[in-house]
Amino acid sequence: MIGRLVEGTPRRGLVLLAVLLMAFLAAPLVANDYMLTVLILILYFSYTGQAWNIMMGFAGQLSLGHALYVGLGGYAAAALYFHFGIGPWLSLPLAVAVAAAAGAILGFLAFRFGVAGVYFAILTIAFAEFARVGFDHFTWVGGSAGLFLPVANYTRNDLWTLRGNPTMFYYVILAMTVAAFVLCHLLLRSRAGYCWQAIREDEEAARALGINTFRYKMYAVVLSAGMTAFAGVFFAFYYNNLFPEQVFSISRSIELILGPIIGGVGTLVGPIIGAFLITGLAESLREVMHALGVDVPGLKQVFYGLCLLAVVMFLPDGIWPPLSRALGLDRDSSRGQGT
């Protein structure tokens, strides 16, 4: 298992990963609460970016509506806790199943009837918007007035019901991010990963090779949706409130894909680097502006736009591919003679 995990990764890449993991594990010892919340946000976007990347980066299906799965997962878990007192870990399978089912419906409609490219992306937006409007009128979960989870006092951490201080949430999202990273690493080298990449590269050629493109595209959507729903459960219990207008809004979907686009679509490290840069810089910018006493609404969005513009113009593959080459971690040098 371990052998398969590290196979083909250069030694200094492993060292770098280990150092990074140690730093993340040790971060709560030195970080204050504010820094910790920023780190949680970074890891949250790393995780969701990783999940989105399965669809776009691996299988080449552009989703602009991933907020749908965050929202469905969050609402499913929050509603069960709110109404029946069922804890997040028990409701997690249901939350994942609901989002995966939504992904399956979307995927089936799109792939069965040949909706592809831009039209597929529009369909994903439509689904998220549909959910937003629907949940506005879904009074069982609060409708447009929102759903609020009872806030516990932060004196003790309860992992079982996800009630606790930022440190606990930090380790939960860190574990999720590491798990997603490992899962994606294994997926890329699996048969499904190969089929996805073939579809991403040239769907017609993939079909000519005998790849069941419909089935593998469905796998990608369902898996990506299910993984994203887990982030939704985390989101619900971390923020303790859910509003359809916020959770399902298109800006959430966009926010979620900025990390992988800036870091490098289709790469494993890209979503993490992207989340780090975009969230880290946005937060620093806010701090600087705050210190200077400047308060401009929408500054974050302008900043996101500028980042995206810079990457698209100067690093169309994202930051990670050129960075990994510079560090000697790219796949050509990592492959060696043996393969």
């Binding site: 990449q197 073939a198 590269e201 050629a205 993939a206 393969t339």
Partner: peptide
């Protein structure tokens, strides 16, 4: 219709 951004080996494996 080869897969342009993958290596020769990966292209073959996908066959």
């Amino acid at each position: 219709q080869i897969f342009p951004s993958l290596t020769v080996m990966e292209n073959l494996e996908m066959g």
